[in-house]
Design a protein around this nucleic acid. Sequence first.
DNA 1: TTCGAGCTTAAGATGAACTTATGCTCGATC
DNA 2: GATCGAGCATAAGTTCATCTTAAGCTCGAA
Lengths: 289, 289
Amino acid sequence: MLDPRKLHLLRELARRGTIAAVAEAVTFTPSAVSQQLSALEREAGVPLLERTGRTVTLTPAGHLLVEHAQAVLEELERASAALAVARGGPSGPLRIGAFPTAARVLLPPALAGLTGAHPALAPMVSEIDPADVSAALRAGELDVALVHEYDFVPPVTDASIETEPLFTEPMYLTSRPTVAEARADAWITGKPGTLCHTMAIRACQAAGFEPLVRHHIDDFDTVLAFAAAGQGVALVPHLAASDPPGGVRLTRLPLSRRTLAAFRRGNGEHPAIVAAVAAFRTAVSRLPL
Amino acid sequence: MLDPRKLHLLRELARRGTIAAVAEAVTFTPSAVSQQLSALEREAGVPLLERTGRTVTLTPAGHLLVEHAQAVLEELERASAALAVARGGPSGPLRIGAFPTAARVLLPPALAGLTGAHPALAPMVSEIDPADVSAALRAGELDVALVHEYDFVPPVTDASIETEPLFTEPMYLTSRPTVAEARADAWITGKPGTLCHTMAIRACQAAGFEPLVRHHIDDFDTVLAFAAAGQGVALVPHLAASDPPGGVRLTRLPLSRRTLAAFRRGNGEHPAIVAAVAAFRTAVSRLPL
DNA sequence: TTCGAGCTTAAGATGAACTTATGCTCGATC
DNA sequence: GATCGAGCATAAGTTCATCTTAAGCTCGAA
């Protein structure tokens, strides 16, 4: 019988590309991952990995098996969710990931509602950029996460991750009426690698120029403080723009940001996930949108 | 992560009813099965088995998990079948089960065709009564089996077994023109527990009487020899009735028997299964029906 | 050429899973 | 109503898979 643990490693290899990265994701040594994949290959009776020097690539058979691995792991996830239902209501630890603004604005009321309704539930929050969420979910480091998508930035499609939209908010530009007019300005964006950084670059490119990025700051309150001090222009979402510091003009742009809840496919019926998404929704409904 | 090996044991327990029977089916000791199921229960965090004295019963949660176990094991079966395809064509051992008449009439030409077309395939045949087939398939003792169904005998429905119909043949009665007229005769049926035995009993009950069973014989050639010797009446299928011994009158009845190929659900795309069913079909097409 | 990143293999340690042995519960039998 | 056997659980020990550590190999970059 094929071992789902090995199938999981194979799937991670397909996503991350190197054995070392897989090992880091599952907190094994590369040696262990290598051995497990070799064993899987032996059981499969057909080469799954192609070793060329110090790199590995999946063979067509390897890719095929990844598809099936996906289906197997999804069914196992469903089975676990069904057991959680049988255990009776949400309980135990629930690891929540959230981008910083959500952690500040959305999570406090959501968590209050969540633990109020389900005292046995122990939510644990980690700040995490949306770009890293799907890997963290797959690795089992998170159970549910708040992520966002921007226009211009294609949403990450991952067969093993499912999302539920929560709300949409408009984006604002500081100091200038349009992005095009900020062509010569210094820009304040998120740190490289974050979605916010990508979003700002793409928005400027869409307006026909490459932005001059001077500051990399993730926290929108700090961003606004910098803008108020004349240190540059920035794009901020509605939620972060409700109470701008003095001297900061905000112009609403025809650009929006969608916030979603993400979780492992097959885990959507898990009572803790259901409860968390419900709590997110009621918190959203009380947001100043 | 839930262990599919343990899920398999739970599914077998649901089918067979006792831990001892499961242990026998998988050639473990009852102790091992008991320990594995206890471990599964611990991981599930909810009681799956109810122990009352020396018997175990599945709880509702246990039954629920069996449903999911079924789905998981089916996906694993699919993955294995996909790997067999990737290995390139049918090869290796293929364990075939067949009821005696099929083993004699159908399998010799079918196996000749099969090994002719796929020399790397090593078919291994075991005679087995259709009543025992699904258990043997689930336990992995067989990969594919020839079974039959009778009118009057409801087909065994097993969520983990899939069937493909091969052909239908009429049934014949020895010595008498109708079943009702054999009310007072001595009957020759299959051994108790076999489908043929059940079928004969039910056919007589449908005609309004309980048969007087004197002989229990599975082999239809022997049955016909007994009938020729005046030892009783019997129901025989068309395939076994092509060359009746002298003195045996055969009357065709409005009663039929269906022969099917059975295999584990999810395994239907396995190249060896595909090849075997194809070989069965060509052998059937050359049968005197 | 050297360094480092990445993969593999060998060898040892750890833990899961099996067997054997034993005890318990309960229904059937004498 | 004692005994027997079927059925399950627990304890203890063994075996085997799986992990880590350690070392070696390959290849691209400095």
